[in-house]
């Protein structure tokens, strides 16, 4: 019998090791798996490389993971936001590495990683500093830069509905990077708002087929960054 449901969110992330590459879903706070990130803070794994579009806000979620000095390197497209204080400070002090990647290149690198494609050529960033040192190749008279696929040891994502096979659906723009991140990790860990029986999700509307998912944890009342930040909350408290 296949059952990917794990009862404890703490247990679901317990094998994330020091030095792991971890993809974290979300675009800003939409789709950010706040509870799974906070359990990773409880666990305390160090020297992580985090692949995520942003670097979080306030002192919760990804920003709190960074503030807790667990992150060696960020791979992202937009490492600042209105309420981001943690990353900019560490970055200016040279205490965290940044690999800045155009957003579409980041998405494609994750997609390629998940699809077994080691590298690809893209027009994005040609003639800019972000292409410095990278292979440039011409196809039909146009220049393209070579970019590598990314694979991770773990992906942490949030979804709307899941079943025990790991079939997932998402909510609105909270989907963003999560479906491709599910495909690109050795172990994909999902927090879901709703847990349902197999068959309750119409096969026609499954966004992430269960084969890409390893663990599912039900978090029926997830916290949101903006609410936590507005209440001046920090993690750990």
């Amino acid at each position: 019998m296949i059952n990917k449901i794990i009862q404890s969110d703490k247990e679901s992330v317990s094998d994330i090791f020091n030095g792991a590459i971890v993809m974290i879903g979300g675009f800003g706070e939409a789709g950010s798996p706040v509870e799974l990130i906070h359990r990773l803070i409880d666990l305390g794994s160090k020297d992580l490389t985090i692949v995520s579009n942003n670097t979080g806000s306030g002192n919760v979620g990804i920003a709190a993971l960074i503030a807790n000095r667990q992150v060696k390197k960020m791979i992202c497209s937009f490492p600042r936001s209105t309420n981001s204080v943690v990353f900019p400070e560490l970055y200016r002090n040279g205490e965290i590495e940044l690999e800045l990647v155009p957003q579409g290149t980041l998405a494609e690198r994750i997609r390629a990683g998940g699809a077994g494609i080691p590298a690809f050529y893209t027009p994005s960033s040609v003639n800019t500093p972000l292409a410095d040192g990278k292979e440039i190749r011409e196809f039909d008279g146009q220049s393209y830069v070579m970019e590598y696929g990314i694979r991770a040891d773990f992906s942490l994502v949030k979804c709307h509905t899941a079943d025990r096979y790991g079939n997932l659906t998402y909510n609105k723009t909270a989907r963003n990077f999560s479906p491709i991140m599910c495909t690109a990790a050795e172990i994909t860990i999902v927090q879901t708002k709703h847990l349902v029986e197999p068959g309750d999700i119409d096969p026609e509307v499954v966004i992430t087929p269960g084969i890409f998912v390893n663990r599912v944890v039900e978090i029926s009342n997830p916290e949101y960054e903006s609410v936590l930040v507005a209440n001046n909350e920090r993690y750990p408290k």
Binding site: S77, F78, R92, P102, G104, S125
Partner: peptide, 8 residues
């Protein structure tokens, strides 16, 4: 803090 997003 360099931030490129989707512009490129």
């Amino acid at each position: 803090i360099p931030a490129v997003g989707g512009a490129m």
